[in-house]
Design a binder for these strands. Structure first.
Lengths: 147, 147
DNA sequence: TTTCATGTAACTTCAATTATTACGAATAAG
DNA sequence: CTTATTCGTAATAATTGAAGTTACATGAAA
């Protein structure tokens, strides 16, 4: 299965945008992410709908942050992306008639729900500002290194 | 992405086997699971390698449990299946040069690792016997209903 | 008006499980 | 011994959703 890396991508993109004065184009972001510009636009469109970024076409256009780094949590980003499925493991049949399978589903659902709740709780308390701070700690007082 | 339902499948299969005196054929299990007999054999082969079930070919052959229900935990089953990826979400690049992306990966890895640890802890303490007990509670003292 | 850049639609590619077909090997019944 | 049954496994398609690609329309600024 191919894993969804959009959350990882937008975090990377937003942090690069935060270190930039003007807008960044899809092409520039794509080069940072080693990705495709169309995919970048497609993914960033989700964040635009959520009011986190803005885009302007034409000369000197591109993408800019429209919210404070401290006001954007990983959870909000996950939601902005449409809350994609977190787990690659799931029930074979979500609405079984078989009582045995109902027991199996109930037990697995409970365990996965607990794990998801923990993850969302963590995501809730991590903001882009936290990530930026972590990045600053990694900088060995060299010039801001791009990728 | 297509979700992996093998853990769910083998739980369902093992519980049906537990309620049976003799062996169950791949065809019978496939009918229970609404699945394909070849897929059943392929999946059950993992559990055979782990010593949880046995198979015999030919007349009156099929699959039998070779371990106690209380001795098989969800965690052991997950391991027997080769510990497939749990999350459908992941980093875009696992070995980034970019310091920004390293921060992103570190933060996400930590959160996902915590969620995985919780899930594995739950799996460790849930046995097939627990599932069988849950199933018994669901039975409205009707005849053992098959699917 | 020309040039960038976004906005999208319409594909193709990719990855991993699941499904299907086919055939060989082993076991037990007759 | 022959036959029916059942597992073992290889080879190939179907499936699903993200990611990549191509193409073109739209909008903004020089």
């Amino acid at each position: 299965m191919k894993r969804d890396s959009r959350l990882s991508s937008v975090l990377h993109a937003l942090l690069h945008m935060a270190e930039r004065d003007g807008p960044m184009t899809s092409g520039e972001l794509a080069r940072c992410l080693h990705a495709n510009p169309v995919v970048v636009r497609r993914t960033m469109a989700f964040l635009r709908k959520a009011g986190m970024v803005g885009s302007t076409p034409g000369h000197a256009g591109g993408w800019i942050l429209t919210a404070d780094l401290g006001a954007i949590s990983l959870r909000q980003l996950h939601e902005a992306l449409g809350e994609p499925a977190i787990f690659a493991i799931g029930n074979r049949n979500e609405t079984p008639v078989c009582l045995v399978e109902q027991s199996v589903n109930a037990v697995l659902d409970t365990a996965f729900a607990e794990a998801e709740a923990l993850l969302m709780q963590r995501f809730e308390h991590i903001s882009l500002a936290d990530l930026a701070a972590d990045f600053a700690r990694r900088l060995p007082h060299a010039a801001a290194g791009e990728d």
